[in-house]
Structure formats: structure tokens, C-alpha cells
Design a protein around this nucleic acid. Structure first.
Lengths: 358, 358
DNA sequence: TTGAAAGCGCTAACAA
DNA sequence: TTGTTAGCGCTTTCAA
């Protein structure tokens, strides 16, 4: 660097410049000056001086002294996904509005990685943590609990602290009804022609499978097989699942339910290997919403989970967190989205940027 | 909390427990013990003790003392976008691999917000910052420079520090060629039937417009109008742009180039208002890649920018940052993606999670 | 090979 | 209404 970085001003520098003591400066600059009964005029003077000098608090020092950092953590499974990244978007806005700083990390659905990240965040003295979609939230709970860090589970519930989740049963029920009805427009549908792809051993999947089975039974009666194909949480593994199915049955099911947009991506990888004309009559449901997916060339019903509400509720709960014997699970109602629907999202709430003028 | 958080162990607690001094403990626990010529056996002993006691460094204290935090910042325009969120994904992985902690924030393309965020990050003593897609990177440069924080521009270049950008001219040239060729399969194409939607006054847009115009001229000759429609950076504004075009011409262009996936979302909002059959012959190019968009029911060519390479180069440069009179701009070649193509992404590099077993 | 001591920049009692 | 003082938990000379 050419102009070597000027050493940053401290409250002592300001103190030397204006004669007030460091503690007065501190109080003025951190907003506690009214309680400290500091004269309005001194406060103004100091604020002006600070501005002139380009003073910036050292938040590490403040955090060290006060044992809180102003950082609020969001632990996601992955960034690269519309559902989770919209959570990040809302989280960032809401945390900033509270005057804190968002710290968004992703653990790649790897439990070890998640543990390490949480440890790390705690080492930075985060003031709170939202844990999204962890497959072992209770282990993370122990870590947070030991460190006295308030934390809430989002999307996948735990048994040790409050959780905010999508109403997976309800969403799956609606989604299943929708795809069956759609398939029935073409021809009557049999119970064993409707499948679910996904279904791991986590809570969300259980509930979705339940909703799927109930809706199916109500509309089509009992089937002799469960019609559930396990995929993984990656596009590649999902592609394999579809390939395997296709190899065995020489076709895809009349209608099927896909557990998330990540799985849906796997379906596309599968489809890409064949001419588009081969799968003309697909009817698909996806438990996730993606604006582009909604316009795919087959009827695709989706569920949009209300990530704004989930984040808002999660942040609220961080403040009120009282440990209960049986921690509450808050269910947030998701929305069924018909094919060819372009919903608005978090980006629509951004301020109009300056280039609007032209 | 029921079991009130045990006060966290400090190096002094460990010191009391094992008789070694705080400075010895410190050296052992931060890895500098070999240089300090501490006996292997004492080191082992202390490490074991620390593990037993569940000791965790206080990174605020370490940071305060050593004037670095181990935090590396990534400032994005928005989270909720495949291009930027894939950057976040790669960034997180690479920063973690370097033993540091990623701090991803988004400024919503609002310059004030960006300034505040950068100030904030600096207050946390970040060790470096990648500035992605800022419309005024040079103003942010001043702030970082004053604080002595190494920083690199990504995606949109600045004049004050090195920048890593997509080769926008080349990408736009290829994309334009592709959509014109595609449209020509149906019938000959005139120069004024091919449009570009997007085009703000930033560097990337300029270069893309240039590539678009050159490719068009080469293939179709000069046209009497420029065929460029300004949209904003939001889906809503883009929808308006398409509506306005449609109102005026009663149709969309034979082939057109859309500046980003955010603009493409605006196109879908427009399309959603009409029956699908009305726009059967669209040929579209999008300067961004989205796996779902690739399977839309019209030929959609896309450009995938190499976010992995951009982030990797950016992080490399952070280490070597020497201010130059004319800071270098590194261009990263993007990839033309044919319709119906499902590329792999950052999620494919994640470790296989444990539930693979079933 | 280790320990003692000073101090990073801030906040919060306690005095004045 | 303001100043003095003692740390927060760590790193880093300097001594031993």
C-alpha cells in the first residue's frame, strides 16, 4: 500500500484532542450517554470530533470487554439454493435492522463441519444463532448451551430447544393432492402410479411422507407398495435414483413428488440424457419453490416455504428463549404454487437503487 | 437456561491447573510453540488438558491483541441468486480451508448500505475483503485503504485495486452468436429483430453490449436502431421493460439477450400473464446460468460465469496485493451453455453425507 | 525452555 | 456531570 494505513484513532486519541476522558467518549460513542447523564453539548462536541477524525469503534475491543459481539449467526446447509439463500437474504435484512451484524455460514450438511463452525462462531462470541436444517441439532444444542449462546432450530426440529419449521405434513398433503388431480385430467390414476422421491430419515421427510401417503390414500385408496424412492440430498444421487427407476420400469411414474429443489435438479440431470419428447406427460410436485422451475415444460406444482416468516419468528425467539422441558415447535404454513407462477421474493423488497433515474 | 452456562475456561484457568504459565499455554494453543521452543512433552500435556477442559480460544481477545481477526469478508449484491450464492459457496469452502472464517454479507446494490457494511466489517478487523458487483468499488476502496484492509473487486472492476471479472465481451459475443444461429433455423433474421434487455451504465454491461453489437453486426449487418432496452437490476423493473416493449410492438423480438438471471426472472413474470402458447418461438440468451432455467420451454442459451475461478483468484490476490498505478484486471473466461444442460455446481463437491449408508 | 509483565481498545464500577 | 481505575483474554517482548 502506498499511503500506509494511518493508525486508527482510538477513544484515547479523541480524549487527548478534546480534553474529555476516555469513559465519557466511550459513553457518547456507544449511545449510553443519556443514562450516564452526560451534557448534551459535550455529547454533540464529541460526536462531531469523532466524525471529523473518521473514528470507528473497534468492535473486537468492545466485544471483549462486554462479552457480546453484535454478531448473529445463521448456519445453513448450503448457500447455493433458493430456499436457503432467501433465508440468508431475509436474515441479513432483519439482523441489520436490529443494529447487529449477520454472520452467515454453511456446513454442507456435514455434521463435523457444522460442529466446528458453531465452535468457531462461539469463539467470536456471537450473540445468537439460528441453526437451519441441521440433521443433528441436538448435538449443536449442547455446544451452544455450554457457551450460553441462545439458539433456535429452523426447518429441521430438535428436542432441546425451540424450533421453527415448515408445516411439512400440510404442505405435502396439498402438493400430493395437486399432482394427483392434475394427472387425473389425462386419465384415471392408480395408487401405484404416484411416487415420492426423496425421503431420508429426518423429521421433515417423515412428515412429508406422511402427508403424501394420507393424501394418496384418500384419493386413490391403498396401494400394494409404498411408492417411495430414497434419494440423497444431492443432485447427483437423485439422478441415480431416477436412472435406477427408469432402468427398472422403462418409464417414470405418472405423477411424482420430489422432496426439494436439489432433488429436482437431479431430475433435470436425468432428463437431460434423453430427448425432451420422451417425457411429455410428466406431472411433478416439488417441495420447494424456484421461479425458473415453475416454467418448466411440464406441470410442476411447488411448495413455497415461508422463509421470511421462519426467520422472523426465529429471531424473535432468540430474544425470548426460555428453555422448556418440551421445547415448542412452531409450524409455519407453506404455500402451494401452481405451475407457471412467478412469485415475488426478497429481492423485491430492496430499495430502488440509484440508477433508476435513467 | 437451566444449567447456567459455565464460565468459559481461559488460559489462566489452564495455567492454574497445570502449573505452566499463561504465555506457554497461549503459544501451545495457537500453534506457535515450535518457534518458541517449547518441549514437545509440555505441549502435548497442555493440548490434552485443553481438550479435557473443553477450552476454546476467545477470538475477540486474540484479535484485539494481534490486530487481525481471522475473518475474511465477502460483500455480495444479494444472496438470493444462483451466481452470487455459488460464489458464497466456493468462498466459504476456500476460506475455511485456509483456516479462516468466512463473513458473507450483502448490500442490496445500495451504495450507502455497502459503505456501512464495509465499515462494520472493518470494525471487526477483517483480514481481507472481496467486493462483488459493487457499482462504486472505488469509494469502498478508500474506506478499506484507510483501514489497511486488503481488498479485491470481483465481477465489476474498479480503478483503485485489482479486479477479477468475467470476460463479458467474449461471453456476450458467444451468446449473441448462439441465439442468432438458433433463430435462423426457423427463418432468416434481420438485424433489428435481435435485442438486448439489460444494459445499465456499469462496466460489465458496457462490455456485454459491445460484444452483442459486434456479433450482431458480423452476422446480420448494421441495423438502424441499437436494439437495446434498459431494464433495472430487479425482476419487477425488468417485467415492466418487457411489458412496455410488448405494448409498443405487439410481440417480443425474434431473439433476445437478457443481462442476468434476475432479469430473466422479470421475463417470466411477464410471460406468466399470458397463455404459454402465445410465445412459442422465443429464442433467448441469458448472461447467467441457472439449472432450472436451462430447461424452460424455449431454447435458452446461457453463460455460466466461472465463480469458482473468480473467487480462487480473488483470494490469491488478497495475499499478494501490491497497489499498482494501473491496477490489473483479470478476465475469467465464461462458458456458453446450450439449452437443456444440467451442469454440476458447488454442491457436487460436498462430502457425501452420512445418510448415504441406507 | 519457560515465566513475568505490559498492553491491544474498550466498558463499567466507583469516586469525585 | 465527569474522571479514575481495573480489567475482558489474549499475544508478545524481554528476562531468566
Amino acid at each position: 500500500m502506498p499511503s500506509v494505513a494511518k493508525k486508527k484513532a482510538t477513544i484515547y486519541d479523541l480524549s487527548a484532542l478534546c480534553g474529555a476522558s476516555a469513559s465519557t467518549i466511550s459513553a457518547v460513542l456507544n449511545g449510553s450517554w443519556r443514562e450516564r447523564r452526560i451534557k448534551e453539548s459535550t455529547a454533540r462536541k464529541i460526536q462531531q470530533l469523532a466524525a471529523e477524525q473518521g473514528y470507528q469503534v473497534n468492535l473486537q475491543a468492545r466485544g471483549l470487554r462486554s462479552a457480546r459481539s453484535g454478531l448473529v449467526g445463521l448456519l445453513l446447509p448450503v448457500h447455493d439454493n433458493r430456499y436457503f439463500s432467501s433465508m440468508a437474504q431475509y436474515f441479513q435484512a432483519q439482523v441489520r435492522a436490529r443494529g447487529q451484524c449477520p454472520l452467515v455460514v454453511s456446513g454442507g450438511r456435514n455434521h463435523n463441519e457444522e460442529r466446528q463452525l458453531v465452535q468457531r462462531l462461539i469463539s467470536y462470541a456471537i450473540d445468537g444463532l439460528l441453526i437451519v436444517g441441521s440433521t443433528n441439532p441436538d448435538a449443536l444444542h449442547e455446544i451452544c448451551e455450554n457457551a450460553g449462546v441462545p439458539h433456535i432450530n429452523i426447518d429441521l426440529p430438535g428436542n432441546k430447544t425451540a424450533s421453527v419449521i415448515s408445516d411439512n405434513y400440510q404442505g405435502a398433503y396439498l402438493l400430493t393432492q395437486a399432482i394427483i388431480k392434475q394427472a387425473q385430467y389425462t386419465a384415471p390414476v392408480l395408487a401405484n402410479e404416484v411416487y415420492l422421491f426423496g425421503g431420508h430419515d429426518d423429521h421433515a421427510s417423515q412428515e412429508r411422507i406422511h402427508g403424501f401417503l394420507v393424501a394418496k390414500k384418500e384419493m386413490l385408496g391403498e396401494s400394494n407398495t409404498r411408492c417411495i424412492c430414497s434419494t440423497g440430498y444431492s443432485p447427483a444421487m437423485t439422478e441415480q435414483a431416477f436412472s435406477a427407476f427408469y432402468k427398472q420400469y422403462k418409464q417414470l411414474p405418472r405423477a411424482f413428488f420430489v422432496n426439494s429443489s436439489i432433488n429436482l435438479e437431479g431430475l433435470l440431470r436425468f432428463l437431460a440424457q434423453y430427448p425432451a419428447s420422451l417425457f411429455n406427460n410428466l406431472v411433478v410436485g416439488c417441495y420447494d419453490y424456484d421461479p425458473f422451475a415453475s416454467f418448466l415444460p411440464f406441470p410442476l406444482f411447488m411448495i413455497r416455504q415461508d422463509s421470511a416468516a421462519m426467520i422472523a419468528r426465529g429471531l424473535e425467539l432468540l430474544d425470548t428463549q426460555a428453555t422448556q422441558l418440551t421445547p415448542t415447535i412452531y409450524r409455519i404454513t407453506p404455500q402451494l404454487v401452481a405451475p407457471r407462477t412467478a412469485l415475488t421474493g426478497p429481492l423485491d423488497e430492496l430499495q430502488s437503487p440509484t440508477f433508476l433515474k435513467d
